[in-house]
Amino acid sequence: MLNHTDFTHELHSSRLVAIVRGTDPKAALASVLALAQEGVRLIEISLTTPDAETVITQAVKEAGTDAVIGAGTVVTRQDALRARDAGARWMVTPALDQGFERAVALGVPVLAGALTPTEAVTAMRSGASAVKLFPASLGGPGYLRSLRDPLPDVPFVPVGGVDAEAARAYFAAGAVAVGVGSPLLGDAPRGGDLTRLRARAREFLTVCTAGAAA
């Protein structure tokens, strides 16, 4: 199991969380492996993906040390247990719900979904490793900047509508990392083009590297 310190280090060094949410388990796994081969370290596999547990287990096995595989859309207590048993090393929740509570109790690093200042503070006090600012598109980089004024120590990871241009703006506003789904994955988890996925992965990694250096 990944510990809190190691996960936080991965967020700060990688600065990119790839979100794989597919309709085809084989395509989802292929997408995960393509991302790992391109150098994407933090890869979240949504539990809404058919046979998600098997995808997670296989991804952990086949990606090896090239990636740190997590589970996303952890909503219920059972979701957290399913993800843990499948081998997920960290978890992502859309809100501060039962899944969040159980993941924290299991000792798994959690990227906890929150939108408001109260939710962000509650998440960190309740054991979150970082805050998934979701849906970030509602307020954009300006909203993140406003949140960071009173909450400079909260590690925010904007998720929702983050393309490469938006990622640059979020880094400038103080994001520790960004979570990216369809702007990065495209149709790959549904059986689409892996070559284009690889190209987009390289683009996002370049943006994240530049953000880390800024």
Rank of each mutant, 00 (worst) to 15 (best):
A103R: 04
V154H: 02
A130M: 03
A88E: 00
E119S: 09
L205V: 02
V154T: 13
H4R: 14
E119Q: 03
E119D: 14
T195P: 14
R84L: 00
S14L: 03
A123Y: 08
P152I: 14
I43F: 07
L81D: 06
G139S: 05
D187Y: 09
H9G: 01
G142N: 13
V74L: 02
D51M: 06
R125M: 02
V157F: 02
F204V: 14
A30D: 03
K26W: 12
A112Q: 08
G87L: 06
V20N: 13
V131D: 12
G186E: 10
G107L: 03
A34Q: 15
G186R: 09
A30S: 00
E53S: 00
G181L: 11
T116H: 12
D79G: 00
A28W: 12
H4W: 11
A18Y: 15
T54Y: 10
A36H: 05
V104K: 00
G139T: 13
D97W: 14
T122H: 13
L2G: 10
G64D: 05
V108A: 03
G174N: 08
E10C: 01
T76D: 00
A105N: 01
L184F: 14
P158I: 05
T122P: 07
A173L: 02
W90N: 09
A28P: 12
R77D: 00
F100S: 01
L184G: 14
P109E: 11
D163Y: 08
L111M: 03
A71G: 10
L115I: 07
P150M: 11
I19Q: 13
R41P: 09
V40G: 01
L144H: 08
V121K: 04
V75M: 01
A34S: 09
G64K: 15
M91R: 01
I43E: 02
R190Q: 15
A164P: 01
V92T: 03
D85E: 07
S129F: 06
G107M: 05
A59G: 04
R168P: 05
R200Q: 12
T209F: 07
S46G: 14
A210Q: 05
